[in-house]
Structures are given as structure tokens and as C-alpha cells.
């Protein structure tokens, strides 16, 4: 898919109707027999269009498993889960991979930039996966790098960038193909407080749009304030969903 086509798809997308993500009774287990672990125990969660949802909770509570199921990289055992109306369970492996490539952007905790590619080339990878030619993809990558304030670092290797800069490159990579859902796993945990806030401001500023949704898994209480809503998870279940202020009030009491 070329950039032009990609842009055209976005322009001709129907207006946001219904929910961006709808999960109901989602369960997921790992292992077998005595070592079987129930990671998700009937999770119900809805994410609206234009919403930044944070998933918070202690380690091992199922946050990462839930975003993996939402992003279609893990199969659920039971329940319903649709993303922009599409149910991964109804898609073949190849179709699911293709759908994911076109519609979901990822930001990882450890950035997962390819160390031998320059920043611009890393940003261009999703477009190349979608079939865009290298030169056009890299050219477009420079434009997106400019939106995250790294226009002058396009030729730098990841090892030549600071942690904050690498995460900004990862954000640019997650945005370049204009996905509708952006999934972030602990995007600020490897960063100091100031850089973490910068990254969150950037995410909120450049990633949010009315036809998009953003899901962020985090432990970092310092960034809860950026969320529209926060879903608290514990032991494989969503125990509460509310605004950051509501969450703070609950914690205060």
C-alpha cells in the first residue's frame, strides 16, 4: 500500500461510529495442567474513538496480555473482542497480520528499533511492510520525524540517540502509516520524568485524532493525568474504569 493510498483510505474512512475497541468476557490462559495460569478472567473493556485509555495495575495483572489480544498478536480463549468492528478470530493468520500492519501502530517499552537501521529507516519500516518503496518510505519518514522534533536526526543510528529520542523515533514509527489504533507498552518506563512527560505530550499531541484510539499500558503514575480514562486491572480482570481524577479520588479514600 502506498502512502498516497494509505492517506486516501484514512480520508475516506467512515466517521467514528460505535466503539473503537470492544471487549466482553475476554479470557486467556497460558500453560497446561498444574502450570496453567489464567491471565485474563473475563475482561470487559470499551475504548471510544478519540480516547486515550491507560491500562494500569500491578505486574502480572494481565495488562500486556490484554493489549496483545486487542492488537491481535495473541488469540483469546473466549469472549468477544472487536477492533473498529473487526474480530481477529474471524480472520485468517495472513489477513490478521495484514490488518494489523495497516491499522495498528506499536510503541514498545524497549523501543525495539532495528539497531542497524537509521532513525529514518526505522520509521519507514511500517510503510515498507505495507509495500511502499524504500525511497518514498524514507522520504515520508523524515516528515514524520519532524513532527516528533527529530528532523535533524534521521541519519542517526539508534545507538547514537538518547532514550527519549529513541522513544520519539518509535512513536514516529507507530504513526507513519496512520494507524487507527496505537498500542503503547510502558512507553515512559525507560525514561526519566521530564523526558517521559515530553513523550506523553507528544503522543497526546500527534497521535490523537477523532478516528483513532490510543491504549497505553503503564505502571508510571506520573503520566496518568494524560489519560482520558484509566482502566485498573488486578488478577486478570478490569476492576475499575474512570477518569484520572476519579482514580485519584479512589486512591485518596
Amino acid at each position: 500500500m502506498s502512502t498516497a493510498t494509505s492517506n486516501q483510505n484514512i480520508a475516506t474512512r467512515p466517521g467514528p461510529v460505535g466503539l473503537a475497541v470492544h471487549c466482553k468476557g475476554v479470557t486467556k490462559h497460558f500453560g497446561k495442567g498444574d502450570s496453567k495460569v489464567l491471565a485474563l478472567r473475563g475482561v470487559d473493556l470499551d475504548i471510544k474513538y478519540g480516547e486515550l485509555m491507560m491500562l494500569v495495575g500491578p505486574s502480572g495483572c494481565g495488562k500486556t496480555t490484554l493489549i496483545s489480544v486487542i492488537a491481535g498478536i495473541l488469540d483469546r480463549d473466549a469472549g468477544e473482542c472487536t477492533v473498529f468492528g473487526a474480530d481477529f478470530a474471524n480472520l485468517s493468520g495472513g489477513a490478521r497480520t495484514k490488518w494489523r500492519g495497516a491499522n495498528i501502530g506499536f510503541v514498545f517499552q524497549q523501543f525495539n528499533l532495528l539497531p542497524t537501521l537509521t532513525a529514518a529507516e526505522n520509521v519507514a519500516v511500517p510503510l515498507m511492510i505495507l509495500g511502499e518503496g524504500r525511497h518514498a518510505a524514507v522520504k515520508r519518514a523524515y516528515d514524520v520525524l519532524a513532527t516528533v522534533g527529530l528532523a535533524d536526526r534521521g541519519k542517526s543510528l539508534p545507538s547514537q540517540l538518547s532514550g527519549g529520542q529513541q522513544q520519539r523515533v518509535a512513536i514516529a514509527r507507530a504513526l507513519i502509516h496512520q494507524p487507527r489504533l496505537i498500542v503503547c507498552d510502558e512507553p515512559t518506563s525507560a525514561l526519566d520524568a521530564v523526558t517521559g512527560h515530553t513523550v506523553m505530550r507528544l503522543l497526546k499531541g500527534v497521535a490523537m485524532a477523532q478516528d483513532r484510539a490510543l491504549v497505553i499500558v503503564t505502571h508510571d503514575a506520573r503520566i496518568f493525568g494524560f489519560a482520558d480514562r484509566v482502566a485498573s486491572m488486578n488478577d486478570g480482570s478490569v476492576v475499575s474504569v474512570g477518569t484520572p481524577a476519579e482514580l485519584e479520588a479512589v486512591h485518596r479514600h
Binding site: T97, L114, I129
Partner: peptide
């Protein structure tokens, strides 16, 4: 050494055949 990178590009939509 690159397995996470392969995993990342797989997550980003690269098929097994690719």
C-alpha cells in the same frame, strides 16, 4: 540476537512468508 527485532516487525504486520 535479533529475535526481538524480528518479533517487532512481525507484530507490525510482516507475514511469516516475508
Amino acid at each position: 540476537d535479533n529475535i526481538k527485532q524480528f518479533g517487532a516487525i512481525k507484530a507490525m504486520g510482516t507475514s511469516n512468508s516475508r
